[in-house]
Computed example of a mutant assay.
Amino acid sequence: MKYLIGTLLVLSGFLTTKAASVDTIAIFSNAMHRSIKCVVITPDSYKDKEQRYPVVYILHGYSGNYADYIRKIPGIAAMADAYQEILVCPDGAYGSWYLDSPVDSTMRFETYVGKEIPAWIDQHYRTKASRQYRAITGLSMGGHGALYLAIRHQDTFGAAGSMSGGVDFRPFPNNWDLALRLGAYKDHADNWDKNVVVNQLPGLKNDSLALIIDCGVKDFFIDVNRQLHQRLLEQGINHDYIERPGEHNWDYWSNSIMYQLFYFNRYFRK
């Protein structure tokens, strides 16, 4: 932990010396027949060098959008310089949960974020286009989305993280538009069971994904994160799991994203 804190302190001084580029683009979805906005952050060196870069996909939470991270954590852009990575912040719409909805054919965000966006980014940016150089993380709804997509698309992603993730939303059947995406829980429990992160674990083998999961101890998702952690231990899946003081808010996530990006940088450099 001392090494991690020291490294982050060194980076905090480095971050002020570079100028990453922040672009808002639109990526067309063949699955949903529409273009959707996305923020792409490239390091300062991207303008001058022909090198290729790892990519971290960062998913927003319920009621958020593609611009959340750059607006609420302005320092995140400089992390692209610090780690020489491309950061991609897609829009997951209002309450998509990054699923291909079984009850609403206009909401196919598993296909969009899990397949279409990475393919588009690899075609239009100088990426290291392999799973070993792609990671995905997110907060709250996006934490669910990141783990859900990474486990189901291990050919695309090599590492995944979650910050305050809604990794099992079944205890919250009346919240966050979930019934609009999956049908009412009392009538469509099978849809809910099939689409929670904890029920994706049978498709996960040890070290098939590098995983980092964290949640604040006063967060309303702490219990489901603890249960996920226990399930991973029982299944013998290596992962980093962090609990620390914090709630479900941007104060927590502004700190958490620094640890997540540090973790992914170490993964890319192995």
Rank of each mutant, 00 (worst) to 15 (best):
residue 1 M to K: 13
residue 3 Y to M: 10
residue 3 Y to W: 09
residue 4 L to Q: 13
residue 7 T to V: 06
residue 8 L to Q: 12
residue 14 F to H: 09
residue 14 F to P: 00
residue 16 T to S: 12
residue 16 T to A: 13
residue 18 K to M: 04
residue 18 K to S: 11
residue 21 S to W: 01
residue 22 V to L: 12
residue 22 V to R: 05
residue 23 D to A: 11
residue 25 I to L: 14
residue 33 H to E: 15
residue 40 V to D: 08
residue 42 T to H: 05
residue 43 P to T: 02
residue 45 S to A: 13
residue 47 K to A: 04
residue 50 E to N: 13
residue 50 E to L: 10
residue 50 E to Q: 12
residue 50 E to D: 14
residue 54 P to L: 10
residue 67 A to F: 10
residue 67 A to E: 13
residue 71 R to E: 15
residue 76 I to F: 01
residue 76 I to Q: 03
residue 79 M to E: 14
residue 79 M to Y: 15
residue 80 A to S: 14
residue 80 A to M: 01
residue 81 D to H: 05
residue 87 L to A: 04
residue 87 L to W: 08
residue 87 L to G: 01
residue 87 L to Y: 03
residue 88 V to G: 04
residue 95 G to M: 03
residue 96 S to V: 08
residue 97 W to Y: 10
residue 98 Y to M: 09
residue 98 Y to S: 09
residue 99 L to D: 01
residue 100 D to W: 06
residue 101 S to P: 01
residue 102 P to D: 11
residue 103 V to F: 07
residue 104 D to I: 06
residue 105 S to E: 15
residue 107 M to L: 12
residue 111 T to L: 09
residue 112 Y to F: 15
residue 116 E to S: 06
residue 117 I to H: 04
residue 121 I to C: 05
residue 123 Q to E: 14
residue 126 R to Y: 07
residue 129 A to V: 03
residue 131 R to F: 04
residue 137 T to R: 01
residue 140 S to M: 03
residue 141 M to R: 06
residue 143 G to K: 04
residue 147 L to F: 09
residue 147 L to R: 01
residue 156 T to V: 15
residue 161 G to E: 10
residue 164 S to V: 05
residue 167 V to T: 11
residue 167 V to C: 10
residue 169 F to L: 10
residue 173 P to V: 12
residue 173 P to W: 11
residue 174 N to T: 13
residue 177 D to N: 15
residue 179 A to R: 09
residue 183 G to S: 03
residue 184 A to L: 12
residue 187 D to I: 00
residue 187 D to R: 10
residue 188 H to Q: 12
residue 190 D to E: 14
residue 191 N to C: 02
residue 193 D to Y: 12
residue 193 D to K: 15
residue 194 K to R: 13
residue 195 N to A: 01
residue 197 V to T: 11
residue 198 V to E: 12
residue 202 P to A: 08
residue 203 G to I: 02
residue 204 L to H: 08
residue 206 N to G: 05
residue 208 S to H: 08
residue 209 L to P: 00
residue 210 A to D: 13
residue 210 A to P: 01
residue 213 I to M: 05
residue 217 V to A: 10
residue 217 V to C: 08
residue 219 D to Y: 05
residue 222 I to W: 04
residue 222 I to H: 07
residue 222 I to M: 10
residue 225 N to H: 09
residue 226 R to Q: 10
residue 227 Q to D: 14
residue 228 L to Q: 03
residue 228 L to C: 02
residue 229 H to C: 10
residue 232 L to W: 04
residue 232 L to P: 02
residue 232 L to R: 07
residue 236 G to E: 10
residue 237 I to K: 01
residue 240 D to K: 14
residue 246 G to T: 07
residue 251 D to V: 12
residue 257 I to Q: 00
residue 259 Y to H: 14
residue 261 L to P: 08
residue 263 Y to W: 07
residue 265 N to G: 03
residue 267 Y to L: 07
residue 267 Y to H: 12
residue 268 F to D: 04
residue 269 R to W: 04
